[in-house]
Design a protein around this nucleic acid. Sequence first.
DNA 1: TAGCGATTGTTGTTGATCATAGCAATCTCA
DNA 2: TGAGATTGCTATGATCAACAACAATCGCTA
Lengths: 136, 136
Amino acid sequence: MRDPLALLPGYALRRAANATAAQLAARLGTIGLKQSGVSVLLLVEANPAVTASALGRQLDIQRANMVPLLKRLEDAGLIARKPIDGKSQGLMLTPPGREMIARARAIIDLFEAELLARVPAQHRDHLLPALDALWR
Amino acid sequence: MRDPLALLPGYALRRAANATAAQLAARLGTIGLKQSGVSVLLLVEANPAVTASALGRQLDIQRANMVPLLKRLEDAGLIARKPIDGKSQGLMLTPPGREMIARARAIIDLFEAELLARVPAQHRDHLLPALDALWR
DNA sequence: TAGCGATTGTTGTTGATCATAGCAATCTCA
DNA sequence: TGAGATTGCTATGATCAACAACAATCGCTA
């Protein structure tokens, strides 16, 4: 079947993102996490006592949509909230959260390595800079 | 804010795809189309009398989800169905469909050109081959 | 220091997207 | 001719993100 979409970088970007996201989601599912949850955990680890609002801004997730996301992580005992002042609350990793993040990192590191391995060597080093230019 | 996600190609892929998809969606919205609809129109144009099932396979869209997609294009008068045999029906572009696809192509061509222009020259030619390797 | 605008966390709702299961009609091929 | 595969479709549920609204609180400034 003739496919005029094959030549469009924008289309390839869509398909590549979908395909890889599905694979990563499947692997993270084995430890009960999703990409959004892992993103939050990684950012909380790197920035102790961040607020939900700041996380949302960094991840481009609406404040309102952070609520169920954080609630699930909190219910799972992975993060804890600590009041900063009367209206803000800082997020911290719990000890189980630290264990979980170690497992998640192992999955992600393997995944990213395999992802890069699929790219022919002569294109490999250009991927990240090119993608960054598209959204930063 | 420290961002450990910045080094991950998989994350950059996600963000780049989201950002560019949102921009393209906004532009296609001005002529009343979505990416999925344009994909269908382009494939129907390149493959007259394709079936809905074949389109779904090519685009990785479930048969069931093709129904509302095609219905909207048909209600808008952009495509028409012609029975092939008792159970299959071939899809064709109508004259208004051909006009619409010309406008869509103008938008897409401009969009793809701008997208590539954002990528630094030394990385530009590596983008499509690298992305193709990730999902084909 | 009193007040006003901005910020935070939250609720509730909506729309879009996608997966799944099932079904009747039809085709294909042995 | 009969069995299995295919096609188009209905119906349903899950998930996700956008949006509007709200009370409480913060921070700056007049």
